[in-house]
Computed example of a mutant assay.
Amino acid sequence: MKYNFGLIYELPHALAYEGRARLIESGTGEGRELTRTWAANGVPQGLFDLGFHDVTDLWEPWCAAAAGDEIASIAFAARLSDAGAELGLVTAKAFRGQGLGAAATAGWSRLPELRSRTLFYSTDRENHASQRVAARLGLRLRGASLRVG
């Protein structure tokens, strides 16, 4: 039997983050153009390597952080209900440690579709990079989780 221990953080709405990343949001003209480009040309290799094989893997609402012309990090709705939303976050290996995951997370927290929902940022207890994103954003730890599978 496999166990997974996680950490659950409170994610405030409209989280401020000073970063240099250009943000692209689902539901905008730029977001629709990004998904059209990926549908036609494929997902960038750095994101493909993390499990994003086509545009159907991009769960709305999402916010992407761009570094130059490349998508470096994507925050997306890993779980979504009328009452709450849990953020999923991936950052391409070449862009880790540069604050781009934090920028995408902050951008996601400002999306209009999420205003009426309670937001959560969850991570595996062993995912220290994800915990650094939470620390960079000043997120408050709310609890722990245990998944048995």
Rank of each mutant, 00 (worst) to 15 (best):
Lys2Gly: 15
Leu34His: 03
Leu100Asp: 07
His13Gln: 10
Arg125Met: 15
Phe120Lys: 11
Asn41Leu: 12
Glu70Ser: 07
Ala40Phe: 14
Lys93Ile: 12
Leu100Met: 01
Asp124Tyr: 12
Glu126His: 15
Ala72Tyr: 05
Asp54Gly: 09
Arg117Val: 03
Gly97Val: 00
Trp38Cys: 06
Ser81Ala: 04
Ile74His: 00
Ala14Met: 15
Leu114Asp: 05
Trp38Gln: 02
Leu111Phe: 00
Lys2Val: 14
Gly31Asp: 00
Ala106Ile: 05
Glu25Asn: 06
Gly46Ile: 10
Gly31His: 01
Leu80Ala: 11
Thr37Phe: 15
Ser109Lys: 03
Arg147Ser: 14
Thr56Asn: 14
Ser116Val: 13
His53Met: 06
Gly143Glu: 01
Leu87Asn: 05
Glu10His: 14
Ser109Asp: 00
Ala144Met: 12
Ile24Met: 03
Thr123Ala: 05
Ile24Arg: 00
Val55Trp: 04
Arg147Gln: 12
His13Ala: 06
Leu141Val: 00
Ala144Cys: 03
Glu25Arg: 07
Asp54Phe: 06
Arg136Glu: 14
Ala77Thr: 04
Ala102Leu: 06
Gly143Ile: 00
Glu30Gln: 03
Val133Thr: 10
Glu18His: 11
Arg22Ala: 11
Arg142Ile: 11
Gly51Ala: 04
Arg110Ala: 12
Glu126Ile: 10
Ala72His: 05
Ala92Pro: 02
Arg20Ile: 13
Arg20Ser: 14
Ala67His: 12
Leu58Pro: 11
Asp82Met: 11
Thr91Leu: 03
Ala134Thr: 03
Thr37Asp: 15
Gly19Ala: 13
Arg142Gly: 02
Pro44Val: 13
Gln98Arg: 15
Asp54Ser: 06
Ala77Arg: 03
Leu89Tyr: 06
Ala39Trp: 11
Glu30Val: 02
Gly46Ala: 05
Ala94Leu: 01
Ala40Cys: 13
Ala104Met: 04
Gly101Cys: 01
Ala72Phe: 11
Leu15Lys: 07
Leu11His: 10
Asp69Cys: 15
Tyr9Cys: 05
Ser122Lys: 14
Ala92Phe: 02
Ser26Asp: 04
Asp82Ile: 13
Leu34Gln: 10
Ala106His: 07
Ile24Gly: 02
Val133Lys: 05
Asp54Leu: 08
Arg147Pro: 11
Gly97Ser: 00
Leu89Pro: 03
Trp62Asp: 08
Thr91Met: 01
Gly42Met: 07
Gly107Ser: 03
Arg140Gly: 08
Arg132Gly: 11
Val148Leu: 15
Tyr121Asp: 10
Arg142Lys: 08
Ser122His: 05
Ser26Lys: 00
Arg20Tyr: 15
Ala103His: 02
Arg136Gln: 14
Ala94Asn: 06
Asp124Thr: 08
Ser116Cys: 07
Ile24Thr: 09
Ala64Glu: 12
Gly143Thr: 00
Gln131Lys: 05
Glu60Arg: 07
